[in-house]
Write a protein that binds this DNA or RNA. Structure first.
Lengths: 261, 261
DNA sequence: GCTACCTTTCCGCATAACGGAAGGGAGGAT
DNA sequence: ATCCTCCCTTCCGTTATGCGGAAAGGTAGC
């Protein structure tokens, strides 16, 4: 484990992440073991988090994420705010199409899924609320990448592209062309295991920048023209509800999310 | 400001809370000022939180709650888990009654609202998702209190009862009787400003304990019998969906949320 | 009784956190 | 252009806070 300089805060956050990743609650020793934080130290940190309400403890002594954290997170503009606005639109889209609907945002160089509705047939895939993926591996990620700040795009495009198991751009040249094409037509598509087609469209925020993306999963046998129109109309509806200007799309500003090399 | 022993973690949490309480984003100086954490120290802590993704920073330099925190909170069982299960039930109840519907849980000696649907007429009240209230001031709080661990009940009952502006039990004696009555009949009511009646019923979790409560706001002119039945049916539906046993109600176990006296 | 596992308290050490001071920068007013 | 204000960031010597091994309590099983 690359030993980042030790720091209470970082360790606390690592512990929170450890608990998040454990489907179930964890007891103290388990937290210590999985997070790599020495038992006594974990004890001190966990106690402090518990005292504040960031963690809860059930009768068997297992710790879980506490309500306080949820209260704090409930004002996160990109997740909960977006979620509240987008949910009814997503539901309408899901109910009329009966196809999987996903909502995601970009966090640095990854896609984070914020909400989803699954049709029974496509329920096999592994996405989950809060899950993270490579930007270039899915249609929804490609849309987010295509409208991301240029410096981040450059970084991803020239960086190592993990080859995904589905059909997606794999060389730098292909990826550049794909992104340009997405910006031109305003949507992205990828194949999923030769059986399904994922179509994604951007959602704009008040500043006109792309703040999220919406996708629809279709069987390949289905013609996607009408579905695409429906998806785009939905994405525009969400954008309008978020207060997006009616005019033309803007790229996001250069990302400030840069630190060391 | 009562100077708790200084500690990075506590200060970090105080900062998060400060940002949460500010409707909008805050810049560094503002964070320092409002949280009482010295500027340089705030800078260090905020940077660390930002680096981890717990905070985000927009182009103007203002900090907001970040996506990472939401991802962590997304697994909080009492909020998000409950929320996902209860939402469709709440919507049904709201759509058929067109009355305000609230979902809340207890956190220590307070009520925390997890979700709500408001009818236009009653939209004046100040509850908001994440808001906290005294347990004995609302119907929903009274239900949560009535089924809370006995030691906590005792603490609240014998403690100072802030007199709420609405009609609610104000003496220890009254409150005890009210709680007993709630347990006997299985629901609570309170008047809101002489115009509305709030009716609340408990929701049970897998262990049979009361984990949340649901309430309905009715105009006083309306007879509440049928609405109450509907509310109780909904609460039972949520309980069942959560995996509650069919049998009899249990009190929560003695709270472990005690520290110093 | 013993073993195995977890949680909590203790305490001397040193390191990570502290925060005043000072150095940039951006924007507004004169 | 010059001053002024407000904000962000870096520096650095000091010290209190966090550290974590060791050992003491707890609980459960055998």
């Amino acid at each position: 484990m690359g030993n980042e300089r030790r720091s209470v805060l970082r360790r606390a956050m690592r512990i929170l992440e450890t608990i998040k990743d454990a489907a179930d609650g964890l007891n103290l020793s388990e937290i210590s073991r999985r997070s790599g934080v020495p038992l006594t130290t974990a004890h001190r940190i966990v106690s402090e988090l518990h005292e504040w309400g960031a963690l809860e403890r059930d009768e068997s002594g297992e710790y879980r994420i506490g309500l306080w954290l949820w209260e704090v997170a409930a004002v996160a503009p990109r997740s909960v705010g977006l979620h509240r606005v987008a949910l009814p639109f997503m539901r309408d889209l899901f109910e009329t199409t009966q196809r999987g609907v996903h909502l995601a945002v970009r966090e640095k160089d990854q896609v984070v899924f914020v909400e989803r509705f699954l049709s029974p047939e496509t329920a096999t895939d592994r996405t989950w609320v809060g899950a993270r993926y490579e930007l270039h591996a899915t249609a929804i990620g490609l849309v987010l990448l295509a409208y991301a700040p240029p410096d981040l795009q450059e970084e991803v495009v020239t960086g190592p592209l993990a080859v995904p198991s589905w059909h997606a751009p794999v060389t730098e040249r292909e990826l550049r062309q794909t992104l340009a094409e997405i910006r031109r037509v305003g949507y992205a598509t990828t194949l999923i295991r030769q059986e399904y087609l994922s179509v994604a469209a951007p959602i704009h925020g008040p500043a006109g920048t792309v703040v999220a993306a919406l996708s629809l999963i279709l069987p390949c046998t289905e013609s996607y023209g009408p579905r695409l129109a429906h998806l785009q109309a939905t994405a525009r509806g969400v954008s309008r509800a978020l207060g997006a200007p009616q005019g033309r799309t803007r790229l996001a500003l250069p990302s400030d999310m840069r630190k060391g090399g």
